[in-house]
Write a protein that binds this DNA or RNA. Sequence first.
DNA 1: CCACTCCTGCGT
DNA 2: ACGCAGGAGTGG
Length: 274
Amino acid sequence: MPEGPEVETVRRSLAPLVVGTALGRARVSRLKLRTPTTSRQLAFLDGSVVDEVGRHGKLLWLQVRSGGGLCIRLGMTGQLTVADATTTPLAHTHVRIALGDGARELRYCDPRRFGEVVPFADAAGLQAERQDMGPDGITLDDAGRAIVSDGLRRTGRAIKEALLDQRLVAGVGNIYAAEACFIAGLNPTRAGHSLSVKEARQLVAAVEETLLQGVARRGTSFSDYVDAEGVQGDNAAHLWVFQREGEVCRRCGTVIERFVQGQRSTFLCPSCQR
DNA sequence: CCACTCCTGCGT
DNA sequence: ACGCAGGAGTGG
């Protein structure tokens, strides 16, 4: 569920709740996440103070003073929240880590268990988790923009599938890939190498625009997604095409179409997108 | 490149 | 009962 903007919203809402706070004991359920993690593996965090909450693409991490920490990938249904420790956790809460004096705790809930909570020992360990990711789409600089637009023009893949590849640009998922293609006026099935230089640049600009809009609206919530305080985002009401099959294009009035591309749903306006 | 897999839950 | 869901890896 969560893409870059949702993860960034979690990061921003989580940071003030945990930075400068000591982590306590971690409790992990027996049900396995995509990468299994045990309470034992998280024991080294007990007593360390959180220095930073970071993000690159859809990867989120908490770094403690020793330089170690915790990487979190939210998968499709992950929620990372801070809650009063006396409240009953949601079903499918797999990890609970006490905060400060223990009145509150950090909770990772993930019904489908496609996400993961993985410890890292030091800066090199964190770097290893970030290994194969391209530049972060929310914080692109000129060099990053060039890497992404050049990468698009070099691939024979369909542009929407290319945008979903985290090695090209990190943080774009199924919602924002479809939205970026709409904003750029490009059919998602266009091959990357069919793009002119200008079209590739427009697509990169559209990726940035849609991701930044998502952040500004605190994420897109259809069902599961909430920030660290349990608050939903407002972006769903502002989408151009995603999940709007059969509705009319907000720009031209043509009926939005849905089809399957790379085993994922894609949406487009057949008249705005060529 | 494609199909399939890991899971649960919800809407039709 | 079935199709579908915001992710990502694997194996053919």
